[in-house]
């Protein structure tokens, strides 16, 4: 056991509520670090945005409000123009695929936008799907539907022919129940995590347009540089292992979410190959407008998109 003076205490702001599996994975990461450094490092976790809120998490790490932070790239639109590519509806089939696509993409591209922090690792949720109060069996069924969505998912809803309605995730339950919205666009785990399975009737497995939300775990650069080499080594090892943990937890959460929804008697609708093709074609403008927008800003992102599409094409089911 180390003396109190020698212990390096780090604060860790996590935007997930403490009961979320991803928050629990963050806790187990912290415990593993503490264990493998023999108590030389102690990590205090602040869950549910109790230290910095989701959209302030990243800049909070730069300023040292927290030493480590986990949140979504997409909550601070514009700050991460290259990482945005990961969230596009490229057809992620599961959380493992999305997580490793995001992590490998980062390692291959090393976007400059992340230079002001130390990136510990990146993970991403399973495919965002449509959950509705009445069955969506083909593209035309979406026409005129009011669908809870924000940011990128709102633009996907628009090209699919629906009406995007934005609201906090916490208000979605009641809005589905009362019919303010007819559907919500989210990974299936939210049906359990946010109890929305109780107020929808079906999920359409439109994985071919599955988008994701990539999430970062980053550390204050000065704090990282000040760590002893042996501690840095432990971090690097544990980080590589925990990408797998997060990936697995996303998939487990999706399985649990589906089980919860099935248990409530909700339907799970599969699309045939032809229908998948139509959906894929429908969301193409979202991807091409991303490329065009970034081109205008002087960024070449085509290479990154190709990387991600190749990754998805060559992905082997685990």
């Amino acid at each position: 056991k180390k003396d109190k003076g020698q212990v390096i205490e780090l604060s860790y702001s996590v935007f997930f509520p403490p009961t979320h599996v991803q928050c629990k994975a963050a806790v187990s990461w912290a415990q593993e670090i503490e264990k493998r450094t023999n108590g030389a490092v102690k990590i205090n976790i602040f869950p549910g945005g109790t230290l910095t809120s989701a959209n302030e998490c990243y800049s909070g790490v730069i300023k040292g409000i927290s030493d480590i932070g986990m949140s979504c790239f997409s909550y601070t639109k514009g700050r991460f123009p290259e990482m945005e590519a990961v969230d596009l509806p490229l057809g992620y089939r599961n959380g493992h695929m999305a997580t490793f696509a995001a992590w490998e993409y980062y390692k291959a591209m090393k976007p400059k936008e992340l230079d002001d922090v130390k990136v510990l690792y990146i993970h991403a949720h399973g495919p965002g799907l449509l959950h509705a109060k009445k069955d969506i069996k083909k593209l035309e069924d979406i026409k005129g539907m009011k669908i809870r969505s924000t940011g990128l998912s709102a633009s996907i809803v628009t090209v699919l022919g629906g009406t995007p309605v934005a609201m906090p995730q916490g208000e979605t339950y009641e809005s589905l129940q009362k019919g303010v919205v007819d559907a919500t666009f989210a990974p299936i785990e939210t049906l359990k995590g946010w109890r929305q399975g109780e107020v929808v009737k079906s999920t359409t497995n439109c994985y071919s347009i599955g988008y994701t939300t990539a999430m970062f775990k980053v550390m204050n650069k000065a704090k990282w540089d000040a760590l002893p080499e042996d501690v840095k080594k432990v971090f690097t090892e544990v980080n590589e292992e925990w990408v797998k943990v997060h990936a697995r937890e996303w998939d487990t959460a999706d399985v649990e979410g589906k089980k919860f929804s099935d248990g409530l008697g909700n339907r799970y609708i599969e699309l045939d190959e032809a229908e998948h093709g139509r959906w894929r074609a429908a969301v193409k403008p979202v991807i091409s407008s991303y490329i065009a927008d970034k081109k205008k800003a002087g960024l070449q992102v085509q290479k990154g998109i190709d990387f991600l599409q190749n990754y998805i094409r060559n992905y082997k089911e685990q």
Partner: peptide, 14 residues
């Protein structure tokens, strides 16, 4: 100024 330099925009209308 930090937000301006980082180019942060609103989620839907940018």
């Amino acid at each position: 100024m930090e937000l301006m330099r980082a180019g942060e925009v609103s989620l839907t209308t940018h």
